[in-house]
Amino acid sequence: MSFQSTPWQTVGPYYRLGLEPLYRVEIAPAAALGERIEVQGQVFDGVGVPVSDAVLEIWQADAQGIYAHPEDPRHATHDPAFAGWGRVPTDDQGRFSFTTIKPGSVAGPRGEPQAPHLMVLVFMRGLLRAASARLYFSDASSNASDPILALVPAERRDTLVAQASGTGQYRWDVHMQGERETVFFDY
Rank of each mutant, 00 (worst) to 15 (best):
S2H: 06
Q4I: 05
Q4A: 09
P7L: 10
Q9A: 11
Y14V: 15
L17V: 13
L22R: 15
Y23I: 10
R24T: 14
E26Y: 03
I27A: 07
I27Y: 10
A28V: 13
P29A: 06
A30S: 05
L33D: 11
E35R: 14
E38W: 08
E38A: 13
Q40N: 10
Q40Y: 11
Q40D: 12
Q42L: 07
V43L: 06
V51Y: 11
S52I: 03
A54K: 02
I58R: 05
W59S: 12
D62F: 02
A63C: 12
I66Q: 05
I66G: 04
I66C: 03
A68M: 03
P70V: 01
E71R: 00
D72G: 10
A76H: 13
T77P: 00
D79I: 08
P80G: 01
V88E: 09
T90V: 10
D91W: 15
Q93S: 07
Q93R: 08
G94I: 07
R95Y: 10
S97R: 03
F98I: 07
I101H: 04
K102R: 15
G104E: 14
P109E: 14
P109I: 14
P109G: 12
E112Y: 04
P116Q: 15
P116F: 15
L118W: 15
V120A: 13
L121A: 11
V122A: 00
M124Y: 07
M124G: 04
R125D: 03
G126M: 05
L128D: 02
R129C: 05
S132H: 07
R134H: 15
L135P: 00
F137G: 14
D139G: 06
N143C: 15
S145Y: 11
D146K: 04
I148T: 04
L149W: 10
V152M: 03
E155R: 04
R156W: 05
R157A: 05
V161H: 06
G168L: 05
R171L: 15
W172S: 02
R180N: 02
T182D: 01
V183R: 01
F184V: 01
F184W: 06
F184K: 02
F185I: 02
